[in-house]
């Protein structure tokens, strides 16, 4: 470090003042208290969004101030945002399956053979049944 002279000015590193750090810490503790304080109450469907919202607020404070992303090179902000975006993609697309798993259950429970047999029975019982033939399997 002996011969480092002109580099420091070029850095322009932001020094976060101690009062700011303490204020953020106070806010984090307060948000934690709110999170814990709310937990005995049954918020119904809002429980998860409220808890996640509070956690996100805390995380944002940590990322912006403690991790100094607010004062940092924008590319780091972009990097972090892309990371968060892809977590969201992962979550949403997986839940798109698991939350709707089995949504094909409303299709006919009969097998094709059973349906054909049923069709034959209908045709035998009713001369006008030909008018009801709509699906390709009916035509056989």
């Amino acid at each position: 470090m002996a011969h480092a002279t002109d580099d420091h000015a070029a850095h322009g590193h932001h020094i976060i003042p101690i009062p700011t750090l303490l204020k953020v810490f106070g806010a984090l503790v307060a948000l934690t208290a709110i999170t814990v304080g709310l937990s005995p109450f049954d918020l119904g469907m809002f429980e998860i969004p409220v808890a996640l919202g509070l956690a996100s607020a805390k995380a944002t404070l940590v990322v912006m101030i403690f991790m100094a992303l607010k004062y940092d090179n924008p590319v780091n902000m972009l990097t972090f945002s892309v990371g968060v975006l892809f977590v969201a993609i992962f979550l949403v697309f997986t839940l798109l399956d698991t939350a709707f798993r089995g949504d094909m259950d409303n299709v006919d429970r009969l097998t094709i053979e059973e349906r054909e047999r049923l069709n034959e029975q209908l045709q035998e019982s009713d001369v006008d049944a030909e008018d009801l033939q709509v699906a390709p399997s009916d035509m056989q």
């Binding site: 990097t79 977590v87 992962f90 979550l91 997986t94 839940l95 939350a99």
Partner: peptide, 28 residues
């Protein structure tokens, strides 16, 4: 610093799978 941030998002994505598993099973 950029390298570190990239490493940090790999950490976030590493944990994300666990959060997804949590969300799926909690939902069920």
């Amino acid at each position: 610093k950029l390298g570190m941030w990239l490493f940090l998002i790999t950490e976030i994505l590493l944990f994300s799978a666990l959060f997804v598993a949590y969300a799926v099973y909690r939902n069920w």
